[in-house]
Design a protein around this nucleic acid. Structure first.
Length: 565
DNA sequence: CACCCTCGCGCC
DNA sequence: AAATGGCGCGAGGGTG
């Protein structure tokens, strides 16, 4: 069963279901109808945009199980068809369906200066006389035609369902919020930075460290917040560095370095997650960031405001379950190399991936039987680290340091897996697009890139620049096939899990390969099992029942996020 | 003053 | 010698 829901104009809403269309509904009536139809029929709701429409429904106390997000699917389809820059909104898609020029997209809701009303009412309107239901129906039919033209329509349909469900999950997570103990956060800030100071001022501990740094430079004032100032100060001491980055400073023997490193760490805490952040982002014991589903080209999520996907490890102690509840934290162990294994069908590597610690197992496969020559540079790293470098180099395109020889070894041992990413890299170097397992498609390189790489030239410098640009895009497409397929998998995982969770357990956080569920303690085991089952289903839906690759999870039911390892 | 860029670093 | 992918954010510092 399918229901179409959208905002007609200004304050009027419409719903089409089972041959009937209700028009001119006021918001309260609309909410009532959505709730009723959801309870009686649990239809697949077709929304012009979940991101724009669903938060208002959640706020009104209504949640739905299934949906089709026309904007997200339009974006995926456009990318698949090689025109990712075109409008994905309902009016844009309708114009295209009618063979007209699509109007420009309106800004996304998170980029708007003032609060939108209930649903989005601004931006280009549908043509006069066209209702939102008619437009949605037309675009939906058009999408189905376009999907049918794809090489793997069934994979795209799975992607659409997973991405649409992810959009529901994202809106719900924003509304529910991540449990966050502001009191513990405040304690931690006072502990490390000193008493609270007004915004724009340096906390006591940073003032002390800045003084120490200046003293170590002979009393001349140095601004540790300004990298150039630090570089100049070191220069005066006869130490030449190209920047003030942490990894460079670490190797310098100078009395200013220890306080500088400590300053950087605390200044980061202060500016990124200090009192200002707490005031702005944590209310009523919840951190409520805004997630953007598919906000990254590879299909990963992005977030706007609050740095939701960069919660520093030191603050995870503030993420605590409510009394009587638990946080079930699950992360997919080494997801990307496993995805590569499944994508490439490398049977040898699949055997390696049977182990929970893939890199340790890979080290065994790569280095047992290799006579160990005592090379000094190799002695401070163990085999597991080397195996990891080899694998990451395959997935990221790294060649520096010892990555080159290690990658060669990996290629000899696992030619199927390595050639999979190398073919993707070569396609990128030629300016071709590549696809994930379910059909997420990389954008084509820019015109500037084509101009740079396309010409023939005698000029050696230009030749070098062209090759650099070409290789750079190859690294992007090489990584894209893995990262985007991992995003496919976690989208399916999220969609499946969302449907399995026992009420009132609910998702509260998702980050690339990790989910957090907030649940009454007595359901924690059931929730853990739901996550395991969802992962298994996701693997089967992406790669088929015969795929031998294991996708193990680290799962823990904890009181605080900091306790999950 | 707004705007835009680079740097540096947090996360995966 | 070099040339490891994807992000968001705040501060500094320059420009108009």
């Amino acid at each position: 069963m399918q229901a179409i829901a959208g905002q007609e104009e200004d304050d009027d809403f419409a719903i089409a279901f089972s041959g009937e269309t209700l028009r001119g509904l006021k918001f309260a009536e609309f909410v009532h109808e959505v709730r009723r139809l959801e309870a009686e029929h649990a239809p697949r709701w077709v929304f012009p945009s979940v991101e724009r429409a669903y938060p208002a429904l959640i706020k009104a106390g209504v949640r739905v199980r299934r949906c089709h997000d026309l904007a997200l699917t339009e974006g995926l389809l456009l990318a698949h068809e090689g025109r990712p820059q075109e409008s994905r909104s309902l009016h844009g898609a309708l114009a295209r369906a009618n063979g007209q020029e699509a109007p420009a997209d309106e800004p996304p809701p998170w980029a708007e200066d003032d609060q939108p009303t209930l649903f989005e009412t601004r931006g280009p309107r549908l043509p006069a006389g066209v209702t939102v239901v008619e437009a949605a129906r037309r675009v939906l039919a058009e999408q189905e035609k376009r999907v049918a033209l794809a090489e793997h329509p069934e994979r795209l349909r799975l992607l659409f369902a997973a991405e649409s469900a992810s959009a529901l999950a994202a809106a719900e997570m924003s509304a529910d919020g991540l449990p966050w103990r502001a009191d513990l956060h405040l304690e931690l800030l006072a502990d490390q930075l000193g008493p609270r100071v007004p915004a724009g001022q340096r906390p006591k501990r940073l003032v002390e460290l800045a003084a120490k740094i200046s003293d170590a430079f002979g009393g001349r004032p140095v601004n540790p917040d300004a990298p150039a100032s630090v570089v100049r100060a070191l220069g005066r001491e006869g130490i030449e560095v190209t920047s003030a980055r942490k990894y460079l400073l670490r190797d310098i023997d100078h009395p200013a370095v220890p306080p500088l490193l400590e300053y950087k760490e605390l200044a980061r805490l202060h500016s990124a997650n200090g009192w200002t952040w707490l005031d702005e982002w944590v209310h009523d014991g919840r951190f409520r960031p805004h997630y953007i589903v598919g906000g990254v080209v590879s299909g990963r999520w992005a977030s706007r405001g609050g740095g939701a996907l960069q919660i520093p490890k030191v603050l995870r102690t503030c993420v605590r379950a409510d009394p009587g509840w638990k946080l079930v934290v699950a992360d997919a162990a080494q997801l990307e190399p496993r995805v590569l294994t499944a994508l490439s069908g490398d049977r040898e590597l699949a055997e390696v991936a049977a182990a929970t610690d893939l890199y340790a197992s890979l080290a065994e496969a790569m280095f047992s039987g290799v006579r160990r020559v005592p090379v000094p540079a190799w002695d401070d790293r163990d085999d597991r680290d080397r195996a990891k470098i080899a694998m990451l180099s395959a997935m990221y395109g790294g060649t520096s340091g010892e990555a080159g020889p290690l990658l060669s070894l990996l290629r000899n041992r696992f030619p199927d897996a390595v050639s999979y990413v190398e073919r993707a890299a070569q396609a990128g170097e030629r300016g071709e697009r590549v696809r994930s397992r379910l059909g997420r498609t990389s954008p084509a390189p820019s015109e500037a890139w084509r101009a740079l790489t396309g010409g023939f030239t005698e000029d050696e410098a230009a030749e070098t620049k062209a090759r650099q640009a070409s290789r750079g895009w190859g690294r992007f497409t090489r990584n894209f096939v893995v990262q985007a397929s991992a995003a496919d998998m976690t989208a399916v995982l999220l969609a499946t899990l969302r449907g399995k969770l026992p009420s009132p357990a609910h998702l509260v956080f998702f980050q690339h390969d990790e989910v957090l569920v907030h649940t009454p303690a007595e359901f924690a085991d059931e929730v853990s099992q739901s996550i395991v089952d969802s992962m298994a289903e996701a693997a089967r839906m992406l790669f088929g029942a015969a795929c031998p690759v294991r996708f193990p999870l680290h799962i823990a039911a904890v009181d605080t996020y900091a306790d999950a390892k």
